[in-house]
Amino acid sequence: MTILDKILMKKQQEVEEMLAANVEFPKNETVRPSLYDTLRKAEQLQVISEMKRASPSKGLIAEGADPVKQAKAYYEAGAACISVLTDNPFFQGSFEDLAAVAEVVPIPLLCKDFMIHRVQIDKAKSAGASVILLIVAALDDETLADLHSYAASLGLDVLVEVHDVDELERALSVDAKLIGVNNRDLRTFEVDLTQTEAVAARFPFDEERVLISESGIWGPEDAIRVAKAGASAVLVGESLMRSDSVESALRSLQVAKAGVAE
């Protein structure tokens, strides 16, 4: 059984508990800028900064980290979006973290979780998310299409995550506009930046879709590499969480996008 399988089994339990409890989520009508528009307009590689305490592959990264303090630091350093991990068993995150961050920053806010049911999307929006993540490797085609259209109907941006070219084709089949390449294989948790380059080589940039590189971004060399491949943004967690200076670390990643003069 892979790590992803274990996570999805736990997620199924959580969904069943939520449905059994028949919880009504309070409406949240907060309006945030569109992440898609933000990334399309920017001339520099943008940074989606992640609040991340732990992961299955690295264990503890920043135990006890304060999401509000971290989010403020990211916002002040120029992050385009803040990603908040809401999975608890494997990443030590929570929807309380997401709601707390939503109170203190006005920029796009991504709920980073393993979405398999509409009720999770309702919970994310209620907590203040303006973007949700759908992981192609975790969903069959029918569920992917259903969750993508449902989230869009709520006015949410949807970041569809792929790992390879086959998954890119599945993302395109639901007309995903924001597509992230996870350089980490969720089955083995090995990281390889060539995944971004391989997907970028087949990416339909002429269709006004946005490519984001996720995982394994540690410094400006990595940022330059994925920007040259065509990425508009990077999603970065561990290196920023471990940094002594969030501002300098984040700004070092804001390199010129492909086709933009230095």
Rank of each mutant, 00 (worst) to 15 (best):
L110H: 09
A42N: 11
V105R: 03
A80P: 01
V31G: 05
V84C: 04
I116L: 13
E76R: 11
K72N: 15
T30H: 01
F114A: 06
D37T: 14
V104M: 02
F95V: 00
A73Y: 06
M51E: 07
M51W: 02
P108G: 10
K58A: 14
G128Y: 08
T38Y: 04
Y36E: 14
A77Q: 00
D66Y: 07
A62Y: 10
L98R: 08
E96V: 13
D37Q: 15
P106G: 13
V68Y: 05
S83P: 06
K58N: 08
G93A: 00
Q92L: 12
E43D: 15
P67F: 04
V31M: 13
D113R: 02
M51I: 15
L39G: 00
I82M: 01
S49N: 04
A71D: 09
V104T: 13
N28R: 03
A62T: 06
D113T: 11
K72F: 00
P33C: 06
V31R: 15
R118V: 11
G59R: 11
K112P: 05
S83G: 12
D97V: 05
P108C: 10
C111P: 01
D122R: 13
K72R: 15
K69M: 13
L109G: 09
K69F: 14
T30R: 12
E50W: 04
N88T: 12
